[in-house]
Simulated scan of single mutants.
Amino acid sequence: MTKTWLIYALGGGWGHLNRALSLGRIAVNQRKVEIITNSPYAKHIHNQGCLLHSIPHYTGFAATCLQVQEILLNTDYDCLIVDTFPRGLGGELVDILPRLHSIPRILIHRDINPRYVIEKDLRSFVVKNFQAVIVPGEGKDLPLGDLPGVIHTAPWLVRNAGELLDKKTVRSHILRVDDTQKIILVCAAGQASELALFSQLTLKLHQTFPECAVRILTPHSPQDELKDLWVFHHPGIECLAAADVIVGGAGYNTVYECAAVGVPLVALPLARLYDRQHKRVSRSYAVKNIQEVLTTVNQLLQTRQPANKPPIPTYTNGAIAAVHHIINYEL
């Protein structure tokens, strides 16, 4: 009988859900995969063969915690995988985890604010309640990175290099750009409240670089004057791979997807309660304001090779190794 993995992936943006899908789509060849999510973007994606327990993002805090507990207590699964928050986003896993004596529990340790780790005494909690900790490409300088038996993989990506759509197809059919133009792609993958900032950036880039094709990648419909520049496609990594320069935040997906496909990222670190984008931004071209965005984009465009001869991405998808590691903990 096929075993079932249940992945806890609560969080308001793309990151938690995309990491869960990156892992789940590889695992579905050997396991049944179910994902708990409250991402507002869940309705915009293909579930990659995974079953989604989708809690509406507008559900209240207490009601969300109760729904999570009901799913955990009333679903049959053989392994629980928790992304980022060992206690749960609202502490709702504290009373549940000790009851799962016979079920392997795996923590996915993305970088997290060390103040939260100290306040909630997460070190002792993780040691007591999880059999393994996997770091998905975030390096070793993490609050829980020195716990015994931590496993490090390359970043998890929702597409392997060989699965990416042909760049010429993406340029013409998705981004709607001809072969002669360089593409500046604004990746508005964060919270819906940040769309105004990225819309302003898009408009300024469009005005400053009229010779380029500027596009804004977001599931949210932007203001009317940007309608012709608006694109939405999932997985976004396929659009990133076809661009010449990316402008965005410094979230997990944006940073590691740009690095994987070899396209420079001009990143504005955005404030988050738990995620330290200011730390991750060092992997990109870090900027502080719109003027620095324009200056850096201009410099990168001067050195970027012609768009019609892009390099073919080659990278390691850490989700593949992670699946093997988790299977080993089931045995």
Rank of each mutant, 00 (worst) to 15 (best):
L270C: 08
L273W: 11
Q277F: 02
A241I: 06
T169L: 12
F209D: 04
Y274L: 10
C187H: 09
A189I: 05
D179H: 12
L205S: 04
P269A: 08
K182I: 00
A250D: 01
T169W: 10
V245W: 06
L265A: 11
K168W: 08
R276M: 12
I183F: 10
P219E: 06
P219L: 08
D244E: 12
S199W: 05
F209V: 04
L175V: 04
L270Q: 15
A243Y: 02
D224E: 15
I237E: 01
K204T: 14
S199Y: 06
V170P: 05
F198W: 15
K204E: 15
L201P: 00
L195W: 07
Y256K: 04
D244M: 08
Q207R: 14
Q223Y: 05
L203Y: 14
E194T: 14
Q191A: 14
L195R: 06
S221V: 14
S193L: 09
D244C: 09
L240Q: 13
D178H: 11
K227Y: 06
D178K: 09
S172L: 09
L175I: 05
N253K: 03
T202H: 07
E238G: 07
F209S: 06
A196L: 11
L229G: 00
Y252P: 01
A213K: 11
A259G: 09
Q181S: 13
A243L: 02
K168S: 14
L175Q: 03
V255F: 03
S221R: 15
V186P: 11
K168R: 15
I237Y: 04
Q200G: 08
D178F: 10
E225C: 13
H206G: 00
A259F: 01
I184C: 11
P210V: 03
P235L: 04
Q191T: 07
V261W: 01
A213W: 02
G236I: 00
K182A: 07
P269G: 06
S221Q: 15
A250L: 02
A192Q: 14
E238F: 08
L229Q: 13
G249Y: 01
S172D: 04
K182F: 02
K279Y: 13
A189R: 01
T169A: 11
K168L: 08
L226N: 05
V186F: 11
P264Q: 04
T169S: 12
A213G: 12
K204M: 12
G249W: 01
P219K: 09
H173N: 10
G190L: 02
H234A: 13
D228F: 00
L175C: 05
A267N: 02
F232L: 01
L203R: 15
A188L: 09
H220R: 14
A243P: 03
R280F: 02
L175E: 04
R276K: 12
S193N: 11
S193F: 09
S172Y: 03
E257P: 04
A267Y: 02
L203D: 13
V245I: 14
G249V: 01
Y274F: 15
V255G: 01
L203M: 12
R276E: 09
F232T: 10
D179L: 10
A250G: 03
G251E: 10
T180H: 15
E211V: 03
